[in-house]
């Protein structure tokens, strides 16, 4: 494997966004790019990252390899990279280590690190293709604000989507709260628009603790997409350039 990223910031942010949710992960490398899938310890949330080969220049992966990496270790090493450094990942066949180099674009500084790899026996889940009943695309900062504000009151949030809009409601010991958003097109700045596409009404309840955690990815993208269908996990997607993405799935709370 040899994969060169123009900006180390991208990998720094991705790892930063998921390191509190998942610890030891396989980075599955093949000629289409670098993918990661991992559940949190309680098996309530699933992280799915795809960094497409087009996000790297150049990208070369001659044989499929799984790089088992501890994200705390990776974070320590990535801290040594500046956001605008050129980052290159290298690994041999059947590797013991992954090699990372950080090159400063404006000086002759080159730093180089090896991280020891681990054998990670992770179950890989098949994520079904789902036609979601409701898809909401909103500013990622707005979603962060809603989850943060409501998490101060309650452990759970009910998300209801109807043709009127989307409503986030919570009930807690001190009282209750809700935030409603309607479809809204911001003509000056499309990134601030709220787009809602609905085929049938949806009402689901989720743990706010996980949603707050997902919002650590807000720095990766101006926009976030929420996809919901009744009685299936919520998909929270942060799109990256070149069709790469960081997705989080969250199992709902169901029943009385």
């Amino acid at each position: 494997l040899e994969a060169r990223l123009e900006q180390a910031a991208m990998l720094k942010r991705v790892v930063d966004a998921i390191k509190d949710l998942v610890q030891d992960c396989n980075f599955d490398c093949n000629d289409s790019g670098i993918a990661l899938q991992a559940m949190d310890n309680s098996h309530v949330a699933l992280v799915s990252m795809m960094l497409k080969s087009e996000s790297f220049s150049p990208f070369r992966c001659d044989r499929n390899i799984a790089l088992g990496i501890n994200l705390t270790s990776l974070t320590k090493v990535l801290r040594a990279a500046q956001g605008d450094d050129i980052l290159t990942l290298k690994a041999e066949d059947a590797p013991d280590v992954v090699n990372l180099t950080f090159e400063s674009p404006e000086s002759d500084r080159l730093s180089e690190y090896d991280i020891k790899l681990m054998d990670i026996d992770q179950e890989h889940l098949g994520i079904p293709d789902t036609e979601y009943a409701a898809t909401i695309t909103l500013p990622s900062s707005e979603f962060s604000r809603i989850t943060r504000d409501l998490s101060a009151l309650s452990e759970s949030v009910a998300i209801e989507c109807t043709k009127e809009g989307v409503k986030f409601t919570c009930t807690g010991d001190i009282g209750n709260g809700s935030v409603s958003l309607r479809q809204h097109t911001n003509v000056e700045n499309d990134a601030k628009s709220v787009d809602i596409s609905l085929t049938e009404p949806v009402a689901l309840t989720f743990s706010l603790k996980y949603l707050v955690n997902f919002c650590k990815a807000a720095g990766l993208s101006d926009r976030v997409r929420l996809c919901l269908s009744n009685e299936v996990p919520l998909l929270v997607e942060y799109g990256l350039s070149n069709n790469s993405y960081l997705r989080f799935y969250l199992a709902p709370k169901i029943g009385d």
Partner: peptide, 14 residues
């Protein structure tokens, strides 16, 4: 009180 489901309940092993 609704109970927290797990991801495995919805997504099968691949």
């Amino acid at each position: 009180r609704p109970s927290q489901q797990t991801i495995g309940k919805f997504f099968g092993n691949s």
